[in-house]
């Protein structure tokens, strides 16, 4: 009598019932998922927003069309975006003129579209932008300036990234 009640032997060999297996499966699934989430949290995983980036390459005044095309191709290869957009000297001039006009000032005569610098722009979206990948362009002697703007995917804040 006592033997039968205490020892698990007569119970164990009989196969586990299906509903118990389902329970085991369910609990294990949850435990596995929970452990994975805990490990990821511990190793620094967090929800990461997708930001909008715009990279602007300001070319030197004397840059030729050929050189411009070369840089345009390089830019397109580095930044996975929706194509490089050219901002012409005239467009830059117009922007400058309207900016001065809004402050009720006229541009000096020496400032003409020919003295303006062309710009190449490319937009991309991503969780981060690797500044190091832009080093090639930054070091290019035909590139005068490199600007990166970011619109935060979380709160819409606009900021400049200085690479």
């Amino acid at each position: 009598m006592i033997d039968l009640a205490d020892s698990p032997e007569p119970e164990a060999p009989s196969p586990p019932r299906p509903h118990r297996l389902v329970l085991v499966a369910g609990l294990s699934l949850m435990a596995g998922a929970g452990a994975a989430v805990a490990v990821l949290l511990f190793t620094g995983w967090r929800p990461t927003p997708i930001h909008q980036y715009e990279v602007t390459v300001v070319l030197k005044v004397e840059t030729t069309v050929e050189q411009r095309n070369e840089i345009s191709v390089a830019l397109e290869n580095i930044v996975p975006g929706d194509g490089v957009r050219l901002v012409t000297r005239e467009e830059t001039f117009e922007q400058l003129r309207t900016a001065w006009e809004s402050r009720n000032r006229d541009l000096p005569d020496s400032v003409t579209p020919a003295t303006m610098r062309e710009q190449l722009k490319i937009s991309t979206s991503g969780r981060s932008l690797d500044c190091g990948s832009l080093d090639v362009l930054q070091d290019d002697t035909r590139v005068d300036d490199l600007l990166v703007s970011r619109v935060n995917g979380d709160n819409g804040q606009k900021a400049w990234i200085v690479c």
Binding site: V24, A25, S28, L29, M30, G32, A33, G34, A35, A36
Partner: peptide
Amino acid sequence: AGVCALVGAIVA
């Protein structure tokens, strides 16, 4: 249990 825990982790 082992297989299910693994599946749970992968799904998570």
